[in-house]
Design a protein around this nucleic acid. Structure first.
Lengths: 145, 145
DNA sequence: TTAATAATGAGAATGGCTATCATTATACAT
DNA sequence: ATGTATAATGATAGCCATTCTCATTATTAA
């Protein structure tokens, strides 16, 4: 729930000497409510429409640098922000190639372990030190399919 | 080899009423030699340094639209271009989080089938019509690790 | 309550990418 | 071969997401 999320973020920011202002709390709440990655423009025209774009980008960057947010990019290279994995849990994405909506999904233990093992195997065979993996499933969502 | 690649591209372009000019052949050769996704800027400062940026982007876009190239994005949202899967074969990426170099890898039949099956399973359970998947392995390359 | 420092707002500046338009090259018909 | 239609190219201006700068406001700590 949201209050626990705020507590975890607050503690993390405190440990990194970054303040958890009321403005920043709104960012966390908005991204938590979103349920998936969102662009700065999207946030600017919805939940955070009272925050100027420059402040919006700056705050998103601050939260990213401290590890609270993660930045990805959509098919057009536009930055998308979502809560970090350690807050949200490790997950993957279903990407609708028609409407471009991204949905967070959890593979479940068995499938997740399988993917992790495959990644580790192939990384090792190429002299790579694996630190993580990304699995996105592309297709058409229920509405578009 | 390169001549066979040129022949396949030429045929494909002909079927789509797009010419395979000598300039465009240089693009295919450059991306084939690269062995992984490359940015427009990278190409502009290496193999294709005699092609102005506007022409470079336009040609890359033309080749993308016709399906010869695929466009992805690096960690900063910068567009990266590589030969399409039907030319290069289905593959995945090892991404070094230190030097940002991306290496194409082939999982091999067994691992590839496993990933495809996992993706299909999770897509189906969410009402998704799967059309593809992306698996990137993050870590440190041999030089950086 | 004051001084030090962090956070915010507003607007300018940057950079990747695209659109425009004139020029050059290529393909096809005669 | 030669001319004509059309595609490809180059140069430049423009667009838009993102970042930078700097003045102002809020917050913390003594």
């Amino acid at each position: 729930m949201l209050t626990e999320l705020h507590a975890r973020v607050k503690k993390h920011l405190r440990e990194n000497d970054v303040r958890y202002s009321t403005g920043r709390q709104k960012f966390i709440a908005a991204l938590h409510a979103a349920g998936g990655p969102r662009s700065a423009t999207h946030l600017h025209t919805s939940e955070l429409d009272d925050v100027p774009l420059s402040s919006l980008y700056r705050t998103l960057t601050v939260l990213e640098n401290v590890g609270v947010l993660e930045r990805t990019h959509d098919g057009d290279g536009v930055a998308m922000f979502e809560l970090g994995e350690w807050l949200l849990g490790h997950h993957h994405h279903l990407i609708c190639t028609s409407c471009d909506i991204v949905t967070d999904i959890d593979l479940g233990n068995d499938l997740e372990n399988a993917v992790a093992e495959i990644s580790a195997t192939v990384a090792a065979s190429h002299g790579f030190t694996m630190t993580g993996h990304t699995l996105d499933v592309l297709g058409l969502c229920e509405d578009c399919g």
